[in-house]
């Protein structure tokens, strides 16, 4: 694209404003996680807290190995899930984009319809646990729900249909390439921007997901980081509210409150903040390499 200096400057300024708006509230969370519980309740959240504290993080460190293990689970699930998902998604989207393909509209409707209605958790749960026996396996975190989503398929299909000229495919066909070769050698490499997009979406989705874990995982060894955080948070909440309803006996419990929730939010996004710049580059390359290896 051609350069234009004043335009660039304006774009930078505008984007900087957007970024500040996006980041300031997150900074508030990070600071709140280092604020002492007292100060939080007395003065509310503040960018300049009166007293700092590491209590929330001590509490998390006490969970020790559990957190490390959950990070590992989350990374594995995110990487494998995203790779599989990208492969399946692009494979499904490519035929839909071909104007000569007779069933493209049927297929498009078939895919789109999954966005409109889902049968709810009960039938899915029965199917995945009774027929596929994925309960309490790592696959329970990967396979249900996210491998192929209509949204991603349509994004890729749309990209193919609009950005890649038919003539390219026709030329390849004349050269005697099979459909699969065309897909592998031409279409996948050409889809890099959109593959990067859906990788990012799918990756975020796997990283942030805790519902699969909630339904299909009982074993804490297979808890993803989000599920673990969710569990800690919910248990604290349940303890605090139920102690009033006298569900509990006279066991003294000393739990950190608000600051720990903030610390957990930070722990949940920290790895992404750290590795995002690398992933941004690597994802694109990795996907292409993986696809070529087939």
């Amino acid at each position: 694209m051609t350069e234009s200096r004043p335009f660039n400057r304006a774009a930078t300024i505008l984007l900087t404003i957007f970024v500040i708006i996006a980041v300031l509230p997150i900074l508030l969370i990070v600071i709140a996680s280092f604020t002492s519980e007292d100060a939080l309740i007395r003065n509310g959240y503040s960018y300049f807290p009166q007293s700092w504290s590491l209590d929330a993080y001590y509490y998390m460190v006490k969970q020790g190995i559990t957190i490390v293990r959950s990070y590992a689970v989350s990374f594995f699930v995110t990487i494998v899930g995203t790779a599989l998902s990208v492969l399946l998604t692009t494979m499904l989207a490519y035929p839909m984009s071909r104007k000569s393909f007779k069933y493209r509209n049927v297929l498009a409707f078939f895919v789109f319809f999954t966005m409109l209605y889902n049968g709810g958790i009960v039938p899915s749960y029965i199917m995945w646990t009774k027929i596929f026996h994925i309960k309490n396996t790592i696959w329970a975190l990967i396979i249900p729900n996210y491998l192929v989503t209509a949204f991603n398929v349509i994004l890729v299909k749309n990209y193919y249909a609009n950005s890649i000229p038919d003539s390219l495919v026709e030329a390849a066909q004349i050269d005697g390439a099979t459909e699969f070769t065309i897909f592998r050698k031409i279409m996948l490499p050409l889809a890099v921007p959109t593959v990067a997009t859906i990788s990012l979406f799918t990756g975020l989705c796997y990283w942030n997901d805790w519902t699969n874990g909630l339904y299909y995982i009982d074993n804490e060894k297979l808890y993803s980081i989000q599920q673990l955080l969710m569990k800690i948070m919910n248990n604290i909440q349940a303890l605090r509210t139920n102690s009033n309803a006298a569900l509990l006996g006279t066991g003294a419990v000393d739990l950190p409150g608000t600051s720990i929730r903030m610390a957990m939010a930070v722990i949940g996004i920290l790895p992404i903040m750290l590795i995002y710049p690398f992933v941004q580059k690597y994802l694109v390359k990795g996907v292409v390499v993986g696809a070529v290896k087939g």
């Binding site: 026996h133 994925i134 309960k135 309490n136 396996t137 696959w139």
Partner: peptide
């Protein structure tokens, strides 16, 4: 994948 993982169930199951 799914069938082999089906064999490695955890204790409770």
């Amino acid at each position: 994948c799914s069938s082999s993982s089906g064999e490695t169930k955890d204790g409770t199951e």
